[in-house]
């Protein structure tokens, strides 16, 4: 589902990623771990074309991204198949929860509003928030907002979901709510790459753990191998 080959990225003259090679099989969960500044976010954002890279190649969900700029159309096609959930939720504050979820299917796929709404309500139900369909993001807790953000991504029926530290802005209680949703997704066979410092989650849900240190793949393998005792 994802194959990254010899990826290199340069920002402000610094090499942020260097010869990163990894593969993610369909239906599996990969967690990206490693010290702060290791390049996890950068790698994730290269996977859906939010950022460009200097060398190497990414194959994801049937699309191929090569080094350098891409025409906007190509990037839009990739992103329709690759969902992303951000550390800061980034919900659209001027829209209700349900409108956040239905906006992209309506305007990108031209889905009729009634169909988009009924599917949106199903998704909100899946993340346990159907009661809050008409609430504005500002009235929701952080954990609730992140769950709406997940539903919003799922509404595009992505083949791959990318999570960038989805719980690090949340307290443990809310983290748990969000992680439960992600674990549930994993059980359902969703292909995912999750950046996290939460080794507990990695042990629980990951098929593969990749550790990025200073822009290079330091180690990669099953959770039991990579995550030694003492990790969080």
């Amino acid at each position: 589902m994802i194959e990254v080959d010899s990826l290199a990225a340069v920002r402000a003259g610094n090499r942020i990623l260097e010869a990163v090679t990894l593969a993610v099989a369909e239906g599996t969960v990969t967690t990206l771990v490693g010290p702060s500044g290791g390049g996890k976010s950068t790698l994730l954002r290269c996977l859906n074309g939010l950022e460009t890279f200097a060398a190497g190649q990414v194959m994801i969900a049937g699309h191929t991204l090569i080094a350098g700029d891409h025409p906007p159309r190509a990037l839009e096609r990739v992103r329709r198949d690759v969902g992303m959930v951000f550390q800061g939720f980034n919900l659209f504050p001027h829209l209700s929860a349900i409108d956040n979820v239905t906006l992209a299917p309506r305007i990108v796929h031209g889905m009729p509003p009634s169909e988009a709404r009924s599917r949106g309500l199903e998704l909100l139900d899946r993340v346990g928030l159907s009661r809050f369909a008409d609430a504005r993001p500002a009235t929701l807790s952080g954990g609730q907002q992140q769950r709406v953000a997940i539903a919003r991504s799922l509404a595009m029926e992505p083949r791959v979901m990318l999570f960038d530290e989805p719980t690090s802005a949340l307290d443990p209680q809310m983290s748990a709510e969000v992680l439960d949703v992600i674990v549930e997704l994993a059980r359902g066979g969703q292909t995912m790459v999750v950046v996290t410092h939460d080794h507990g989650f990695a042990r629980r849900a990951a098929t593969q753990v990749v550790e990025l240190v200073a822009g290079r793949v330091h180690r990669a393998g099953p959770p039991a191998e990579i995550l030694t005792a003492g990790g969080r």
Partner: peptide
């Protein structure tokens, strides 16, 4: 983050 979130959903720049 608002622009990125919209782009990440597959919207075009104008959308």
């Amino acid at each position: 983050g608002q622009f990125e979130a919209a782009l990440a959903l597959g919207m075009t720049k104008w959308q």
